[in-house]
Design a protein around this nucleic acid. Structure first.
Lengths: 150, 150
DNA sequence: TATTGTTATACTCTATAACTATA
DNA sequence: TATAGTTATAGAGTATAACAATA
């Protein structure tokens, strides 16, 4: 049916050009909404789901260097939001887990941040558009993580 | 028609919870792909489209404080990537515009960054999913900018 | 007074390099 | 040697506060 492929390519290119700017600004704005640094909230959120993780596992999931995670975890420990225990089976590993205070902070932070986003979505998008965005969110996650097996 | 509303709400909530983490990681990874700081590239891109802008206009579009833009623009000027001229009609204003060297840098940077993203999209998404993401991108832009009239 | 912009300073976040400890 | 993690240091990016210049 003619040349839908050309139009399609243009869409994808336009997407690849626009997406970086849009999400960078969105991240910037959400950072201001939170009362807790985004890096902290992200780590706490993972610990809540998984229970406990090593620094290396965290760094892989967050796509940062392991040295960076060390600093984040150190700051979280200083706040009393995580606990660190040495893995007795491999004493090189430190297992990071959510402390009670961390759980409280996480609950509060997540409510704030996702509430802000939900207000934006309610205000700026139609119901149909919200559904579309919800459908696209797992795709962004896949792009962020580099695929199901990465 | 039962309770589609409940399911819908769950989708939107899941979206609002997942989206911040995913796009934060995506921004992080794209920053590593670029050879130019993301804040620089973003400002250069706007100047290419609009021609010249004041610091205040830039700060509003980028959703940062005007003090922050001052520093970005100062760095861009030091690199020779933008030119700054005083607006003769209002001598408080400095008009920032793209210098030839800035245009070269921008072209190169944009090719790198959007190429990386396009490779990810080609590798990790189906054609249908790419179309879905392309459709959702303007919605993310709207959320980022706070609406058509903001 | 209001607007536009700068300077000074500090914090968050992440990186690279060099190191220690355990396997 | 390889893996897990730390410490030291630096740079990008952005914020707040106080200031100067122009309208």
């Amino acid at each position: 049916m003619g040349t839908p492929k050309t139009e399609f390519r243009i869409d994808i290119e336009a997407c690849a050009k626009q997406l970086p700017t849009s999400i960078a600004i969105l991240v910037r704005r959400m950072r201001l909404e939170g009362d807790v640094p985004a890096s902290f909230a992200s780590v706490l959120g993972r610990l809540e789901i998984v229970g406990s993780m090593t620094a290396t596992e965290l760094s892989e999931l967050e796509h940062v260097r392991h040295q960076s995670i060390t600093q984040t975890v150190k700051a979280l420990e200083a706040k009393g939001w995580v606990q660190i225990t040495v893995n007795p089976d491999d004493r090189r590993q430190r297992l990071v887990s959510l402390a009670p205070a961390g759980r409280d902070i996480l609950t509060d932070q997540r409510r704030r941040r996702s509430e802000w986003l939900m207000v934006q979505m309610d205000t700026l998008l139609t119901e149909q558009e919200r559904t579309l965005l919800a459908a696209a969110t797992p795709l962004l996650e896949r792009l962020a993580m580099g695929g199901p097996a990465d």
